[in-house]
């Protein structure tokens, strides 16, 4: 099962969502491989791996085979690091050709901000696309671009919006899921603000097993599995 976290805009929680989902499935005993398509290497850094391995960029460009996923400092989680070379890449290989089905039950691809070509490369591979967003006009504009792009695809992956850093005490956050679900015409999930998750990511530690973010990740994961199956 392949899941892509996209958003077009930066800072909307793509990497956070990727890690929270990875932690959820790893705890269920699934073999999870993270794939960092962001030239900034944020997911690589968050997972405690070294960002200077450009194996994925080379392999996508057709300059050799992808290396095996490397073990991160997070127990049970491995990663294929991308590298800064992803910035100007001309893809010649599909992502699915780079990871053997035998290696992973779930592959989670973290897409970069502002890079439509890499988004499309991930969408080619994805069973489900999570469009990461916030209850903010600029983030919604980015999400709309991704959703339009996904709608035109054939076959289209399952698409949902994931609203990050949500706080139900704020009126707009409370109203946003229904408002956007109606406007986008796709499921809208939310990941509530969770200080424990933020602290774990800062510390390079595994996202917490309980708490708001863990509960929300479980809901999103269930939708993805239902959408896929």
């Amino acid at each position: 099962m392949w899941v892509a976290c996209m958003g077009r805009k930066g800072g909307v929680g793509k990497t956070t969502a990727a890690l929270a989902l990875a932690a959820h499935w790893t705890r269920l005993g699934r073999r999870v491989v993270l794939m960092d398509l962001d030239p900034q290497g944020s997911l690589t850094l968050a997972a405690g791996a070294s960002p200077d391995g450009a194996a994925l960029a080379d392999a996508i460009a057709g300059h050799g085979a992808a290396s095996e996923p490397v073990q991160t400092t997070l127990p049970g989680l491995s990663i294929l690091t991308g590298g800064a070379e992803l910035e100007g890449i001309t893809p010649t290989q599909t992502l699915r050709s780079l990871v053997a089905d035998t290696v992973a039950d779930v592959v989670i691809v973290d897409c970069p901000p502002g890079h439509a070509a890499l988004d499309r490369l991930a969408a080619d591979a994805a069973d489900a696309v999570l469009v990461c967003c916030e209850a903010h006009r600029l983030a919604v504009a980015g999400a709309a671009r991704v959703i339009e792009d996904m709608r035109r695809r054939s076959p289209a992956p399952a698409v949902a919006v994931l609203l990050g850093r949500m706080d139900d005490r704020r009126g707009l956050d409370k109203a946003a899921p229904d408002l956007l679900a109606g406007a986008f015409g796709v499921p809208v999930w939310k990941m509530r603000q969770d200080a424990a998750l933020a602290m774990a990511m800062n510390a390079g530690a595994m996202p917490p097993a309980s708490g708001r973010a863990a509960e929300d990740a479980a809901v999103v994961a269930a939708w993805i599995e239902g959408a896929k199956l």
């Binding site: 006009r137 504009a141 999400a143 709309a144 956007l180």
Partner: peptide, 8 residues
């Protein structure tokens, strides 16, 4: 929010 959606 809806204006953002239209712009996107």
């Amino acid at each position: 929010l809806l204006a953002g959606l239209t712009a996107g």
